[in-house]
Amino acid sequence: MDTRWAKSSHATYNCAYHFIWCPKYRRKVLINGVDIRLKELLIEKATEHGWAIEKMEIMPDHVHIFIKTTPNDSPVFIISQLKGYTSFVLRNEFQWLKSRLPTLWTRSYYVESIGHISEDIIKKYIEDQKTR
């Protein structure tokens, strides 16, 4: 998805989300190689599903991702795939994570849809349809 729009057989779209999530208890465990491996795993899972990670930052106690997706994939599906896969692999590869945390990630997350056009412009466009 190199351009602003992507196409399928029946749709032209620009679906992008900003996700943020944290380790359980907001522990600073995304360090000492866990952060590097986490990036690799997130890219791997995104590629598997046809998603494009536009920007990613791994902090010691939280993750930021800006990801472009297809209209077929809901935010809850995307985050469950990313968190579930990375938790499973990281806890197997870094055994010390199991002793520090009962689960790697909290159940909660933040998501915001990102678009090229602001909410105000969309509202105005819809409102202006009455006068056409």
Rank of each mutant, 00 (worst) to 15 (best):
D73M: 03
T131E: 04
E44Y: 00
W21P: 13
K7V: 07
D128T: 01
S8G: 06
A16L: 13
H10Q: 14
H64D: 08
R37A: 10
V76L: 10
G33N: 15
G115C: 01
V89A: 12
V34C: 10
V29L: 04
I43M: 11
T106P: 02
R107K: 06
K83W: 00
G50P: 02
R132F: 13
R100Y: 10
P75K: 01
L30R: 13
P71C: 01
W96C: 04
L101P: 05
W96D: 11
R26P: 02
K24N: 03
I126N: 09
V63R: 10
K55I: 06
W96N: 13
S74A: 09
K124R: 04
L82N: 09
L104N: 09
I114L: 03
L104V: 12
K24F: 05
W105Q: 01
E57G: 08
L41P: 12
V76R: 08
P102L: 02
W105K: 07
D73P: 02
I122L: 06
F88D: 10
D73K: 00
W51E: 01
S87D: 11
D61L: 14
T86D: 11
G115P: 03
Y85H: 07
L38Y: 00
D35F: 03
Y125C: 12
I78N: 05
D73F: 04
L30T: 14
A6Y: 13
I78E: 01
N32V: 08
E112F: 00
D2E: 12
S108P: 07
T103R: 15
M59W: 03
T86L: 12
R100T: 05
Y109F: 14
Q129C: 11
R4P: 15
K45H: 08
W5C: 07
F77V: 14
D2F: 05
D2S: 12
I117N: 12
G115S: 15
H18K: 11
K45Y: 03
D128H: 02
I67W: 00
N14V: 10
L104M: 15
I53G: 04
A46G: 15
S108T: 09
K123L: 12
K68E: 00
P75Q: 01
E93Y: 02
Y125H: 09
K124D: 06
V34N: 02
I114E: 01
T103C: 14
D2R: 10
Y125K: 00
Y110F: 15
N32W: 03
Q129H: 01
A52C: 11
E119A: 14
Q129N: 03
P60V: 10
